[in-house]
């Protein structure tokens, strides 16, 4: 990262911690997520990967007595300062979930809905087509647009969820183990899609699949749990470095499969 040009960052965290009541789930995270790159968050189960990811678009607002300290900066604005609007923030930071969760509506409506509530004015058909193309789904569903989204396969549903996310034109897309519920072929298609998407979007992906992180991401954050059961980022670097020359012994154990 010793570039002459300071890279542009999509997200910068300063000592970000997430607490549930008196329990600290994630402690002291300091990462800089570069724009238009794919950043993977890896680590053993229960280390707070998803919790950290969900704090990036304030999905943890819906968890009772969840509290966030530290800073999470987007374009210099702290996401957790009082004057930030969570609804607008989520529009800028889209999210794809672990299990595909299309709305019980038609394929077309699944994409149009988010755009419509966000005040989209323009040719909706065009937007739907573009988004589906962007998610590499158009060819498969162009004749089924009025069919229920539930008639699609799991992999198609997940790409539909990606399509509806890019339809609202966010800056950042968060992906929470997006392929964990899918078969290997669908998984591969999602990974290819991510490479396509990073031309326009910054992507942060949580994964428990080491190969996936190694294959698909540019940067990797390694998380681990400490003796107070709080998760934290122990190493954050180029994916290549993490997988070939990790600085931390625990990272090395984990990526080489010696852990747990």
């Amino acid at each position: 990262m010793e570039n002459n040009v300071e890279p542009e960052y999509a997200i910068v965290t300063n000592d970000l911690s997430i607490h549930y009541g008196s329990y600290t789930a994630v402690k002291g995270v300091n990462v800089k997520v570069e724009k238009q790159k794919i950043t993977a968050i890896i680590g053993p189960s229960g280390c707070g990967k998803s919790t950290l990811l969900r704090s990036f678009n304030r999905m943890n607002d819906f968890v009772p007595n969840c509290r966030v300290t530290g800073e999470l900066l987007l374009q210099g604005q702290n996401l957790y300062s009082k004057d930030v609007d969570p609804v607008e923030a989520r529009r800028r930071i889209g999210m794809v979930f672990q299990k595909p969760n299309p709305f019980p509506k038609s394929i077309y409506e699944n994409i149009a809905w988010g755009a419509r509530i966000n005040g989209f004015k323009g040719n909706m058909d065009e937007l739907v087509e573009q988004s589906l193309r962007g998610a590499a789904l158009w060819e498969e569903v162009k004749d089924l647009l009025q069919k229920s989204a539930y008639e699609l396969s799991g992999g198609q549903q997940q790409r539909l969820c990606i399509a509806r996310t890019i339809a609202i034109q966010p800056e950042i897309i968060l992906m929470d183990e997006p392929a964990s519920a899918l078969d290997p072929i669908s998984t591969l298609r999602i990974e290819e899609l991510m490479q396509e998407l990073k031309k326009n979007y910054t992507i942060i992906i949580v994964t428990h699949n080491m190969q996936q992180a190694a294959r698909a991401s540019d940067y990797t954050a390694m998380m681990m749990i400490d003796d107070q059961r709080s998760g934290g980022v122990i190493e954050f670097d180029d994916t290549k470095k993490i997988f070939t020359r990790p600085k931390d012994k625990r990272t090395e154990d984990y990526v080489t499969g010696r852990f747990g």
Partner: peptide
């Protein structure tokens, strides 16, 4: 997750 999907769309 259906609700979360909606919230995540803003």
């Amino acid at each position: 997750p259906l609700r979360e999907g909606a919230y995540a769309m803003g």
